[in-house]
Nucleic acid binder design. Structure first.
Lengths: 405, 405
DNA sequence: ATAATTTGTTTTTTATTACGACAAATATTG
DNA sequence: CAATATTTGTCGTAATAAAAAACAAATTAT
C-alpha cells in the first residue's frame, strides 16, 4: 500500500502513541458500546493496564462514562463503558427548497425530539430568524440537556469549506449566502454548514457500528430536486480542491440530452431528478429555476402512489427514472469502485418498483460483473439521512482521527 | 476534518512513534536531498538529538548514506544525507499492445540505462521468456549494481490487486493472465504488476520533490489505445473494492455514441483513444479488438506530423479529439475536483495544438469557473511516465507510510 | 589566538508501553 | 457452605523513546 505522506507531516511526539490509542478506544466504545475494559484490551491486543489508563483519562474528560455491569459466564462482572452522550445534544437542520427540517439529537445521532418542519423562506435573513427561534424553542422543550455542542446545517448546494459560505444553491436561488455567522450570532452556538450529499455520506460512515468487516469506500447518492453525491474514500470525506468533489450529478449521460439547471445538457441530474421524473410523467420539459411552494401541487410521492395504484404512465415514468439512475450509477461505480452505494431521496420509497431497472441498466455499463453487483442500499426518508448528516457534521469531529503519518 | 478510523485500526506500540518519525525523515531526505541532520531537525521541529538516533538507524539499515559536506555562513559544516540508491536498482517494464519497453532505474526513478524496446508477443509465455532474457541482459550490462529490488510491470488493463493477475487487457487480447509467478520464477526477483494509469499516478505523486505546497488529490489520464485513469486521493492510490477504480474511460459522453471496445456505447474512450482519433481522420469507424504490428502503418504521431504540416483534416481530427478530451475531463474534475490533472499519451505531443479546444470544452461543462481552471499538465512521452510508474511500483513501498490511525 | 557559531553526540529527565503480579468479584464444585 | 477457578480491573517495575540540556567538534570572524 504505497502511501506517500502528504507534505504537512505530523511529527510523532511523546504523546502521539497515547493519542492514537485513546482515539481508537473512543471509537471502539462508539462502535461497540456497551463494552468493558477487558473487551477493549482483547480487541486491541494490548494489556488491560494500558486500557485502564486511557479509560481513566477519558472518564476524567467526560468523554465516556461507566454504566451498568455486564454478564460473564463466571468471574468478576465487567463494568460497561458508554459514550457520554446523555446531556450533550446537537441541533440538526436540513434546508431544502420547499421546507426546512429541524431535530435535536444526541452525540451519536439518536433523535431526542421529533422532527420540526416549516416552510423555507427564500430570504436568508428571514430564514435565520425563524431558524434561531425554532432552535431555541427546541432546546427549551428538552429539559435533560445541559450542553448543546453546535448546529449542523445541510443545504442542497455548493459550500466553501473554509468559510462555510453557500456559494450556489440552485433550487434555493442562493448565491454567496452565509448562514454561519448570523445563525451563530443569533443562537450563541457554533454552526457547521455542508452540502447535503457529503453530509449524508459522512452520516452513513458514522452510523457504522459493531464488527462490520471494514466498509471500504462509500458513496451516497441523494436524488431530489437535484442529484447530490457524497463520497467517502479511505475513511474520509472526499472534498477536492474546492470542496465540490462528488458532483456526479453533472456528469453527462448524453451530451445532447435535456437541458440541466447547471446550464449544460444531458447531465445525469437532468434525467433522474424529481423534476425530470415528473416532467416525464406529464410529457413536458423539466422546469428550471427556484422551486416554490406554489409548485408543490404534485410530487414524486404522489406519482409513486399512482404507480402503485396501477397507472401505467406513472409506472413507466418511475421505471425510466430507475433505468437512468442505473446508467448514472454505472459511471459512479466505474469511476470509484466503491464497496457500497447508498441511495436517498423520495424515489427510494419506490425501490421495489425500480430496483430491476436500476440493476439491469447498471449491468449494461458496469465494466465488470463484480462491479455490476456492487451493493446498493436505499435509505428511506423515514431515516432522515440528511438530518443524520447534519448531526454528524457537529458530532463526528469529536471522534475523528488525526492523520499522523 | 472528520476521519473515522477504518476498522482494521493499528494500535500504537512502543515503537510506533519512532517508526512514524523515521518514515518522515526518510521521506524528507527523499524530497530534499541533499539535506543535513540539523536541517531535518529544523524542518520537523524536533531536537537534533532525536534526528541523530533516527539517522543512525537508517544508516545502519543502509537506507541513507552520508555524502559530501555542505556550506554554511559560519560554524561547523553539515554532512549531507542521501537516499542510498546507488547500488540498488529497479526494473521497469511497460507492456503495450504493439511494443514492450524496458528500463533499469535507481530507487528514485532515475534511469540507469537507456530504454530497450521490443515487439510484444501476444503469447504470455513467450513474452515472459523474452522479458526474462532481456532483463538479465540489462542487469548484466550495468556493472555498478549489486542489488535489484524487483521488477515493476505496467499493463493496459485491469489487474487484480491481491494476486496481480491480469483480469482483462482488451488491446492485448488477454484474460486472466498471470505474469507475476512465471516472471518471478524466471528471474528470481519479486514482480509487481499494475494497471498503467494507476502506476502513472503513483509515479507523479512519487516524483514530487522539494517544498511543493502539498499537491492535494491528483489524477493521471493516459490516452493511447484506450483511456486509463489513475487517481491519488489523500496521498494514496485509489483502488476501490475490485482494484478497478478510475475507469473514467468508460464513463459515457453520449449513451448512443460510437461503440467502445468494452461493449458499451459512447464511452469517453471511444471518442479520444488513438484509434478514435485516427478513425476520425480516415472517416471510418474505430476498429476494436487486439491491435497487432500489422496495423501500425499510420499512428497518431504521424497524424500530428501532418497536422503540423498544415493538413486541415488532420488538424480538425486532432482538435476534435481535444474537444472530447476536455468534455471528459470535465466529468473527471466535477467528480473528483482534483488539484492537478496529468495527461499522458501520444496526443500530448500536440498539446499546443489542442490545449485551446480542451480548455474551452472543459469550461462548457465544468461546474464552477474555479474547477474549469484546474491545472492540467501534459506529460511528454520522453519522460516515459509509464516506465516511471513501473519503477514506482517497486520503489515506492520502501518509503510508504503505514496508516496508524 | 580568541570568541562566536553551527553541527552533531551524549547524558539526563520524563512519559508511555510492556509485562507481571495482585486484589476484587463472582460462579462452580465438592 | 467453604474452597477453587475464573475473570475483571489496578498497581508497580522494567524497557523504550521523546524532550531537554549539556557538551564536543568544526569552522569562520574578529
Amino acid at each position: 500500500m504505497p502511501r506517500i505522506p502528504p507534505a504537512p507531516y505530523q511529527v510523532a511526539t511523546r504523546g502521539t502513541s497515547r493519542e492514537i490509542n485513546s482515539r481508537i478506544v473512543l471509537n471502539l466504545v462508539r462502535a461497540h458500546q456497551p463494552i468493558s475494559r477487558a473487551d477493549l484490551a482483547r480487541k486491541m491486543g494490548v494489556r488491560r493496564s494500558a486500557i485502564t489508563l486511557i479509560v481513566n483519562d477519558l472518564l476524567k474528560r467526560r468523554a465516556v462514562f461507566e454504566g451498568a455491569t455486564g454478564q460473564t459466564v463466571r468471574g468478576r462482572k465487567p463494568t460497561f463503558l458508554y459514550i457520554d452522550s446523555r446531556r450533550r445534544a446537537v441541533i440538526a437542520a436540513d434546508i431544502r427548497a420547499s421546507d426546512t427540517f429541524l431535530m435535536l439529537s444526541d452525540l451519536l445521532g439518536k433523535p431526542l425530539t421529533g422532527v420540526v418542519t416549516f416552510q423555507t423562506s427564500p430570504d436568508p435573513k428571514q430564514l435565520v430568524k425563524t431558524l434561531a427561534a425554532r432552535i431555541k424553542a427546541l432546546i427549551a422543550e428538552c429539559p435533560g440537556i445541559d450542553a448543546c455542542e453546535g448546529i449542523g446545517v445541510v443545504v442542497p448546494g455548493m459550500v466553501e469549506h473554509s468559510t462555510m459560505k453557500i456559494l450556489h444553491a440552485p433550487t434555493l436561488g442562493w448565491r454567496n449566502v452565509s448562514l454561519r455567522e448570523p445563525l451563530a450570532a443569533a443562537t450563541g452556538l457554533p454552526v457547521q454548514v455542508e452540502n447535503s450529499g457529503r453530509a449524508c455520506a459522512l452520516a452513513q460512515l458514522w452510523a457504522l457500528r459493531g464488527d462490520a468487516p471494514l466498509p471500504g469506500d462509500l458513496v451516497f447518492v441523494s436524488v431530489s430536486d437535484g442529484v447530490g453525491v457524497g463520497v467517502i474514500i479511505h475513511g474520509e470525506v472526499l472534498r477536492g480542491r474546492h470542496n465540490i468533489a462528488g458532483e456526479f450529478g453533472h456528469v453527462p449521460l448524453s451530451l445532447d440530452g435535456p437541458r440541466c439547471a447547471c446550464g449544460a445538457n444531458g447531465c445525469w441530474e437532468a434525467y433522474v431528478s424529481n423534476r425530470a421524473t415528473l416532467a416525464r410523467y406529464f410529457g413536458r420539459a423539466a422546469t428550471a429555476g427556484p422551486e416554490r411552494a406554489s409548485q408543490r401541487h404534485f410530487t414524486v410521492e404522489d406519482l409513486i402512489v399512482r404507480a402503485r395504484a396501477g397507472d401505467a404512465k406513472a409506472i413507466a415514468a418511475v421505471e425510466t427514472t430507475g433505468r437512468y439512475l442505473g446508467l448514472g450509477l454505472a459511471s459512479v461505480i466505474n469511476a470509484l469502485d466503491p464497496s457500497r452505494v447508498y441511495i436517498g431521496g423520495e424515489i427510494t420509497s419506490a425501490w421495489d418498483l425500480i430496483e430491476g431497472s436500476v440493476r439491469s441498466a447498471l449491468s449494461e455499463r458496469a465494466l465488470t460483473s463484480a462491479a455490476a453487483r456492487t451493493e446498493i442500499r436505499p435509505v428511506a426518508a423515514s431515516e432522515y439521512p440528511r438530518l443524520q448528516g447534519a448531526a454528524a457534521l457537529v458530532a463526528a469531529p469529536a471522534f475523528a482521527a488525526s492523520i499522523v503519518a
